[in-house]
Protein backbone atom coordinates (compact mmCIF):
# COMPACT_ATOMS: atom_id res chain seq x y z
CA UNK A 1 0.00 0.00 0.00
CA UNK A 2 1.29 3.39 -1.00
CA UNK A 3 -0.26 6.80 -0.95
CA UNK A 4 0.47 10.03 -2.72
CA UNK A 5 1.81 13.01 -0.79
CA UNK A 6 -1.08 15.45 -0.51
CA UNK A 7 0.83 18.22 -2.26
CA UNK A 8 2.35 16.08 -5.02
CA UNK A 9 2.32 18.09 -8.24
CA UNK A 10 1.56 16.92 -11.75
CA UNK A 11 -1.24 16.38 -14.19
CA UNK A 12 -3.67 13.49 -13.94
CA UNK A 13 -3.36 10.77 -16.55
CA UNK A 14 -6.13 8.30 -17.32
CA UNK A 15 -5.20 4.78 -18.33
CA UNK A 16 -6.52 1.26 -17.75
CA UNK A 17 -5.37 -1.66 -15.62
CA UNK A 18 -6.77 -4.97 -16.87
CA UNK A 19 -9.49 -3.00 -18.62
CA UNK A 20 -10.51 -1.00 -15.54
CA UNK A 21 -10.11 2.78 -15.63
CA UNK A 22 -7.30 4.10 -13.44
CA UNK A 23 -5.52 7.37 -12.76
CA UNK A 24 -1.88 8.28 -12.46
CA UNK A 25 0.22 11.42 -12.35
CA UNK A 26 2.18 12.47 -15.41
CA UNK A 27 5.75 11.34 -14.88
CA UNK A 28 4.71 8.14 -13.13
CA UNK A 29 6.27 4.99 -14.45
CA UNK A 30 3.80 2.21 -15.17
CA UNK A 31 5.06 0.39 -12.08
CA UNK A 32 4.53 3.48 -9.91
CA UNK A 33 1.09 3.96 -11.40
CA UNK A 34 0.16 0.37 -10.53
CA UNK A 35 1.41 0.82 -6.98
CA UNK A 36 -0.48 4.12 -6.67
CA UNK A 37 -3.62 2.25 -7.68
CA UNK A 38 -3.13 -0.44 -5.06
CA UNK A 39 -1.94 -3.12 -7.48
CA UNK A 40 0.89 -4.79 -5.56
CA UNK A 41 1.29 -7.91 -7.68
CA UNK A 42 1.63 -7.31 -11.40
CA UNK A 43 2.36 -10.81 -12.63
CA UNK A 44 2.92 -14.43 -11.77
CA UNK A 45 6.25 -16.01 -12.60
CA UNK A 46 6.78 -18.35 -15.58
CA UNK A 47 8.68 -20.79 -13.35
CA UNK A 48 6.42 -21.46 -10.34
CA UNK A 49 3.45 -19.19 -10.86
CA UNK A 50 4.27 -17.19 -7.73
CA UNK A 51 2.96 -13.61 -7.57
CA UNK A 52 5.46 -10.78 -7.99
CA UNK A 53 5.43 -7.03 -7.79
CA UNK A 54 7.92 -4.25 -8.45
CA UNK A 55 11.07 -4.72 -6.39
CA UNK A 56 13.87 -2.39 -7.55
CA UNK A 57 12.08 0.36 -9.51
CA UNK A 58 15.27 1.02 -11.49
CA UNK A 59 15.24 -1.48 -14.29
CA UNK A 60 17.44 -4.23 -12.90
CA UNK A 61 15.17 -6.85 -11.30
CA UNK A 62 12.55 -7.46 -14.04
CA UNK A 63 9.89 -8.26 -11.48
CA UNK A 64 7.55 -5.49 -12.65
CA UNK A 65 6.97 -7.05 -16.08
CA UNK A 66 3.52 -6.26 -17.48
CA UNK A 67 1.75 -6.19 -20.81
CA UNK A 68 1.57 -2.66 -22.16
CA UNK A 69 -0.64 -1.77 -25.11
CA UNK A 70 -0.70 -5.40 -26.13
CA UNK A 71 3.00 -6.16 -25.84
CA UNK A 72 4.06 -8.55 -23.10
CA UNK A 73 7.00 -8.52 -20.69
CA UNK A 74 7.55 -4.77 -20.65
CA UNK A 75 9.51 -3.33 -17.72
CA UNK A 76 6.87 -1.31 -15.94
CA UNK A 77 9.37 0.78 -14.00
CA UNK A 78 11.15 1.94 -17.17
CA UNK A 79 8.14 3.13 -19.15
CA UNK A 80 6.14 6.24 -18.37
CA UNK A 81 2.39 5.93 -18.23
CA UNK A 82 0.59 7.91 -20.93
CA UNK A 83 -3.04 8.81 -21.49
CA UNK A 84 -5.08 5.89 -22.74
CA UNK A 85 -2.36 3.33 -22.07
CA UNK A 86 -3.62 -0.22 -21.65
CA UNK A 87 -1.73 -1.98 -18.86
CA UNK A 88 -2.41 -5.63 -18.16
CA UNK A 89 -1.08 -7.84 -15.41
CA UNK A 90 0.50 -11.08 -16.60
CA UNK A 91 0.07 -14.75 -15.89
CA UNK A 92 3.18 -16.86 -16.26
CA UNK A 93 4.94 -16.99 -19.60
CA UNK A 94 4.18 -14.36 -22.20
CA UNK A 95 2.32 -15.31 -25.34
CA UNK A 96 4.22 -15.34 -28.60
CA UNK A 97 2.07 -12.80 -30.40
CA UNK A 98 1.64 -10.29 -27.65
Amino acid sequence: MFQRLPDAGGERVSFTIDGQPAEALSGDSVAAALIANGVGACRTTPVSGAPRGPYCMMGVCFDCLVTIDGTGNQQGCQIRVHPGMRVETQNGKREIER
Binding site: F2, G27, I35
Partner: peptide, 11 residues
Amino acid sequence: ILLKTSGLVAS
Protein backbone atom coordinates in the same frame (compact mmCIF):
# COMPACT_ATOMS: atom_id res chain seq x y z
CA ILE B 1 12.57 6.27 -6.26
CA LEU B 2 8.80 6.12 -5.77
CA LEU B 3 9.05 9.11 -3.47
CA LYS B 4 11.30 11.16 -5.75
CA THR B 5 9.54 10.41 -9.02
CA SER B 6 5.91 10.10 -7.96
CA GLY B 7 5.55 11.50 -4.47
CA LEU B 8 4.46 8.07 -3.25
CA VAL B 9 5.11 6.83 0.28
CA ALA B 10 4.26 3.49 1.84
CA SER B 11 1.17 3.55 4.01
